[in-house]
């Protein structure tokens, strides 16, 4: 029974959602298209959805600067891999005991985790403590440790999911058979909790990949910059690339000839690209993760 109203609603949803999707995508499209446009055309016509005159100047320029960009990519990749691995180990080792209903003191320890979601010291004490007492300034630990290493949200998400995914009876019978707690964790909990472990890893990975905050606060030396920090620095100071080029001794390169406006877009495009490439593959998990509450709002 397909009424006029049925078709009306279908058409209306298509129109509105199509427009919303367009609004979501257009700025990203402009970014990519501008990075592939000739510098002179950009200066005349501005950034646009479609490259009026195709040009690769921006990427040629980036290729000359590849040491710096590859280095930043390397830092981001390294931090994402190590950070995500450390995160999942620490998070699951804390979440599993908390998921055990029989653990003495369970409520007390859960509260310790929980309270950090309600109250925090904020930037000033955190910064002073990490720099004055732990001396992480300008070390790789600055990108790995603060905030991102373990999130109380993920601990609770995993605790809740593990207690429903791993039945008490299985743990009990394994324990009667003489399995140690660590064996139970490795052989039973991890395999059975795989879906939630994968979800937390995905979110932790995205958090590390996208993070600029730690680098902005704890790094002053450019050698350790991640791709996000490099982008941040360039946005703050467009002169950055040109001075670096001058310092690198590219004498023939006039500062004015640097395709600044397109380079800016090219480097941001390079920063987004991995996310766009990976997105279709992780999209289902990502949506499921949001639905179960993996992302703090």
């Amino acid at each position: 029974m397909k009424t006029k109203e049925y078709y009306g609603i279908q058409i209306l949803s298509h129109v509105i959602l199509f427009l919303s999707a367009a609004v979501a995508i257009i700025p990203i499209l402009i970014l990519f298209s501008s990075s592939f446009t000739e510098q002179a055309t950009i200066i005349q016509n501005g950034y646009n959805i479609w490259p009026k005159k195709f040009g690769l100047e921006a990427y040629e320029y980036l290729w000359k600067q590849r040491d710096q960009i590859f280095r930043a990519y390397g830092v981001t990749a390294l931090v994402t891999v190590i950070g995500t691995a450390a995160n999942i180990v620490v998070t699951s080792l804390l979440a599993y005991p908390l998921s055990r209903r029989d653990l003495p003191g369970r409520n007390f320890f859960s509260f310790l985790v929980f309270f950090t979601m309600l109250f925090n010291g904020g930037l000033v004490p955190t910064y002073l403590m990490y720099t004055e007492y732990f001396h992480i300034k300008n070390t790789i630990f600055a990108l790995l440790v603060p905030t991102l290493l373990m999130s109380p949200w993920y601990v609770f998400l995993m605790r809740t999911n593990l207690s429903s995914m791993v039945p008490d009876a299985i743990i009990e019978s394994a324990s009667i058979d003489g399995a140690t707690e660590f064996t139970i964790f490795r052989k039973i909990v991890i395999p059975m909790g795989r879906p939630i472990i994968a979800t937390v890893m995905l979110f932790s990975g995205i958090n590390y990949w996208n993070d600029w905050y730690n680098g902005m606060i704890y790094l002053t030396k450019a050698e350790l910059f991640s791709i996000q920090n490099l982008l941040n620095r360039m946005l703050a100071d467009i002169q950055f690339l040109s001075t670096n080029a001058a310092m690198a001794g590219n004498m023939g390169e006039m500062v004015a000839s640097i395709p600044g406006t397109t380079v800016r877009m090219a480097i941001a495009a390079v920063g987004i690209l991995p996310i766009i490439v990976v997105y279709p593959f992780v999209q289902n998990n990502f949506v499921k993760g949001i639905a179960v509450g993996a992302v703090k709002g």
């Binding site: 959602l17 199509f18 919303s20 999707a21 979501a24 995508i25 700025p27 990203i28 402009i30 970014l31 501008s34 950009i42 200066i43 501005g46 950034y47 646009n48 959805i49 995205i206 996208n210 993070d211 600029w212 996000q228 982008l231 941040n232 946005l235 406006t261 800016r264 877009m265 941001a268 920063g271 987004i272 996310i275 766009i276 997105y279 279709p280 999209q283 990502f286 949506v287």
Partner: peptide, 30 residues
């Protein structure tokens, strides 16, 4: 539609600063 509308959520605020600049730059913005 769902994937397209969710995409901006995966971008960092630094990148969104660039996108904003591509839209709102005084001389060159879209």
């Amino acid at each position: 539609y769902q994937s397209a509308i969710l995409l901006p959520f995966l971008l960092s605020m630094v990148i969104i600063g660039y996108l904003g600049n591509a839209m709102m730059n005084t001389e060159l913005g879209f």
